[in-house]
Amino acid sequence: MEVKTGEKRTIRIFNPFFISGFLLVFIYLVLKFGIHPPIPSSLIAMYMGIIIFAIILYISSSESIFQEFLHPINLFLTLDRLKVPRTVIGIFIPLILGFWSYQMALPKYEPPAGLRTIHPAPPDEISVKDEKIVLSKANNPFRGDEVEKYKKEGWEIYFSRCMPCHGDNLNGNGHWAKRINPIPINFRDPGTIAMMPESFIFWRVAKGGMGLPDEGAPWDSAMPVWEHDLSAEEIWKVVLFIYEETGFQPKKWQ
């Protein structure tokens, strides 16, 4: 299919210029509105950057495709009959860029997006109720023949202390979860406890959000410091329960 532009010059509808433009708009719309929950704009910008890069590579990897791509641009810039739209676009583009720059420069009341480390490096050793625990060597003392018994005890602790936030299904969807930002962690996500040794989880439960190092943004976590209310044994039991219930194996210290 071809569109006549006069002066014996034609542009194919399936010209790489139009196809790539259509592709970019289509992919952007899918990323912006087609995925739920929505993707943060920082990531959409990165994705679009790579996709534009890939399209440019494809177009310029063949001289014939490259020339075909440039053809509508050349016609637009040179045809006399397109003088009016050319002038309009010539005015419009700087205006859009100016408006965009203005928007970027406007002061915002929202806190800036931050890089929060979800799994910060734990300290060498911690102290819980005056008991020193070397995290890289600590193992759950309740892993043995009576796992089921201790799991049940852990279950009781979990449902009295953790369930309101982390949920009865351990998926971070407790009835208080929506009032907390960021919401509690989902233990059933393979990217959470399954990536960590048990002593890491012990540390996080014992010291809570306030015990996070700066990189983990301790001001940005609602996790209580459970060592004030639970003994080390009780924390180990609840950690045991979380792993056993989700079916994940704790990562081993290497």
């Binding site: 929950p37 920082s42 919401i183």
Partner: peptide, 21 residues
């Protein structure tokens, strides 16, 4: 694994970890 999201975006996602990404 964890996204750089504004507060508004994080609220829409509902967590620091996006369930798909």
């Amino acid at each position: 694994h964890s996204l750089v999201a504004s507060l508004e975006e994080a609220r829409k996602i509902g967590a620091t970890l996006h369930p798909i990404l």
